[in-house]
């Protein structure tokens, strides 16, 4: 079977590490060979961060390069544009419509591109744009953005809903399970 490639991109501190842990657990339990490559250290301080998740029968490289990602889950809009060249032709982007200005934009040295999503759509990218922040707040916490986006990703896989919930249960602390279960439900059915 072909290896499936998922990139989780965003801004350091947004919680992409938990999302990748969840995927790793779920896909390993499904019997796949899995590799997940994470970012630690300096980039976590508000920089652009990328996590690679690859699964299939046998996975060698832990990273994903240009033209290889079947899915990009972007926790922030601008980051979707930054990493889009990693997508396969006609690949799927799931993007949180939240905008977080990078420092060059804040200090006026650059401008935040205005029509990222329409440009991606025009290039043949399948775009699922979702206001994950509002949905997460609906579930009870802005921190649940990662789980809302995982729910959007889940719609593209044949793995049963309950297995995702089980993977969430074994990944998050017990006291946060109900919040995250709800965030997943809201994201999935939004």
């Amino acid at each position: 079977m072909k290896t499936t490639n998922i990139m989780i991109v965003g801004v350091g501190g947004q919680g992409s590490l938990l999302a990748s842990k969840l995927l790793g657990k779920l896909l390993t339990d499904e019997g796949y060979d899995v590799k997940v490559s994470e970012v630690h250290g300096m980039s976590q301080r508000g920089g652009s961060v990328v996590t690679y998740v690859r699964f299939g029968e046998k996975v060698y490289s832990p990273i994903i390069t240009e033209g290889e990602a079947d899915y990009i889950v972007s926790f922030e809009k601008l980051e979707a544009a930054r990493w889009a060249p990693c997508l396969v032709e006609g690949g799927q982007i799931i993007v949180n419509t939240q905008e977080i200005d990078p420092m060059p934009v804040i200090i006026g040295a650059a401008t935040y591109p205005s029509d990222i999503l329409s440009e991606l759509t025009a290039k043949g990218v399948k775009v699922d744009a979702v206001d994950a922040l509002s949905l997460a707040l609906q579930a009870g916490s802005a921190k649940a953005v990662n789980i809302v986006l995982m729910a959007r990703l889940a719609k593209h896989f044949e793995i049963p809903y309950e297995k995702w919930i089980a993977a969430i249960e074994s990944t998050v602390a017990p006291k946060f399970f109900e919040l995250n279960r709800k965030a997943f439900e809201i994201g999935y059915y939004a």
């Binding site: 652009s48 601008l78 889009a84 990693c86 060059p104 650059a110 990222i116 440009e119």
Partner: peptide, 13 residues
């Protein structure tokens, strides 16, 4: 791959 025309401003830490 997909080429994006509008340059994404850098996001340094």
């Amino acid at each position: 791959t997909v080429t994006v025309d509008s340059a994404a401003p850098a996001r340094p830490p």
